[in-house]
Design a protein around this nucleic acid. Sequence first.
DNA 1: CGAATTCTAAGATGGACATTCTAAAACAGT
DNA 2: ACTGTTTTAGAATGTCCATCTTAGAATTCG
Lengths: 190, 190
Amino acid sequence: MGRTRTFDEAAVLDGAMMTFREHGFAGASVRDLERATGLSAGSLYNAFGDKEGLYRAAFGHYFRLVIEPRLGAAVTLDEVEAAYLGLFEPPMTDGFGCLVINGVIEFGGQGSAPAADLIARGLDIVDQSLERVLAHELGPAAGHAARRLALIYQGLLVVSRSGRPIAPYRPAVIEEFDRLRALRPTTTKP
Amino acid sequence: MGRTRTFDEAAVLDGAMMTFREHGFAGASVRDLERATGLSAGSLYNAFGDKEGLYRAAFGHYFRLVIEPRLGAAVTLDEVEAAYLGLFEPPMTDGFGCLVINGVIEFGGQGSAPAADLIARGLDIVDQSLERVLAHELGPAAGHAARRLALIYQGLLVVSRSGRPIAPYRPAVIEEFDRLRALRPTTTKP
DNA sequence: CGAATTCTAAGATGGACATTCTAAAACAGT
DNA sequence: ACTGTTTTAGAATGTCCATCTTAGAATTCG
C-alpha cells in the first residue's frame, strides 16, 4: 500500500477543536492549526482536504466527545441537569465556549457556512434532547420548559465564552431544575 | 475653519452597525463598510480614525438606540417583558443578532478586543437592569430569576442570529414572565 | 527490492485586506 | 475674495492568508 499514518487522529482533532473553539473558523489560521495539531500544512491538507474539512472533522469530534454523551444521551431530568452543571466544571471552564454556538454567531443563518449542516445538527440535538426528556418525565405539565431550557443552555455558553465568572449563574440553573422536579408526577402508593 | 461634514452621522452609524452585526468586526471589510455607509474609506478613516474607532462608534449608536431605551430604562416587570418580546418583532428579526453578544463570541474573554470595555458594559447593563427590576418588584421572592432571565436573553439572541424560527420560543418566554408576575406581592385591601 | 502512499519542509501564488498617501474640491472666517 | 483647513475619492502599499506545488525521506506491501 504505502506509508501508514503516524499521527494520532484523536490528538490532532483535539488540537484542531481547541483552536477552532478559541479563534473561530476564519480566525484560526493554518499556522495556528499546524501548531495545535503538530502536523504540517501539507499533512493537514492531505488528510482533511482543506481548512473546511478539518473544521468539519473537529465538529464530529466535538459531537462524539461532548454533546452526544451528555445532552444527547440524557434520559432523565437529573441527567439533563448533570449536563448543565458540567458547564461549570473543567474542561468546559476554559473560556473557549462551544463549537456549535460559536459557529452560530460567526456565520449567522448563512446556509453557505462551512459547517451549516453540522451547526444545525448541534442545535437540533439540544432542542430534541430537552423535548424528549421533558415530555417523558413531566408530560404536559412541562409546559414550554424544554424551549426555556434550550435558551438557558445557549445563554450559559455565551457567558462561558465571555470570560466572566460563570459561577453566579449556577444557583439560577439549579433553581430551575428544582422547579421542574417539583412538577414530576409523584409515584406514591396509596 | 474648513470644509464642513456633509454626511449624516446617524445614517452612517446605522449602516456601520448593520454591517458589524451581520459580519462581525473581523468579517466586515472596509469595502463592506464603504458600501453600507455611503462614505469612502478615506472619509471613514478621517472621521473615525480606524476600523476599530468605527466599531466603537457603532457600539455607542447601538446602546443609545436599542439597549438603553429598552432594557436599560425598564422599571417594571412588564417593561422588561416588553423588551424581551421586542426581540420577536422587527427590526430585531433581521437575523443579524446583537452587537454585544456577537462581540462576546467573536472575541471571547480577550481583554485586548477592539471593544472589550463596551462589550462588558453591554453585558453589565443587561445583568444590572434585570437585577434592579426584579429586586424592586419581587424582592427576595425573585430568587435567582434575574440571572436566569439574563441567560434566556442571551439565548434568544443566539437563536435570533441562527436564522432559525424564533417564534416557538415566545410562549416559553411569556410563561416565565407569567410565573414571575405570580410572585408579585399582592396589594389587595383587607 | 520496488511500487505506492504518507509525511515533512519550504516556497510560490494569487487574492483580500487595513491602512496610508495624493490631490482636488468644499467650506469657514476674515 | 483670500487663506488655511478639512473633507472627500481613489489609487498605492505592504501584510497576511489559504492553498498548491515541489522535492525528498519514510514506510508499507507484494
